[in-house]
Amino acid sequence: MTARLLRFSVNGEPVTVAVEPQRTLLEVLRYELDLIGSKQGCDKGDCGACTVQIDGLPRLSCLTLALAVEGRDIQTVEGLGRAHGGCHPLQDAMDRWDAAQCGFCTPGILMSAESLLRRSPGPVTRSEVREALAGNLCRCTGYTKIIDAVVDASEQMAAPRDETEAAQ
């Protein structure tokens, strides 16, 4: 099939890329734009490693036709720390909690978790985190430390801090 021009925004930057119609968003991100943070684990919607945010909502890029994101705003893990000096509070918390072992599922988990924290006004509960991460499989770390880290990050972000306005 003839490639077509696709225009959308990735992490706040406009991109134009020629894609064949049958390409998924994941293929375009990883192999055309070299945004390798989003991972391919199962390629059919089971594992959540390919999770990105489309217009702020976490979705599976392996099950999204690239052409369907024309004009949309895509956030990937590469852009997560931009407003936070390179390290989002979630990334910092997951680092402190040892919540990323092989790190392959982690970008997807971060994108799901960030969406939860952005929609929650204050600290989140463990059950809210469990529900928000119910589509992201982790094999090495185990979920306990991941949940600990997300709750911790939400507390960090909710706590008033003098030196930074970064917490949303």
Partner: peptide
């Protein structure tokens, strides 16, 4: 249905 990620889509 499935997972939150699937349901968002």
């Amino acid at each position: 249905v499935a997972s939150p990620l699937i349901r968002n889509q």
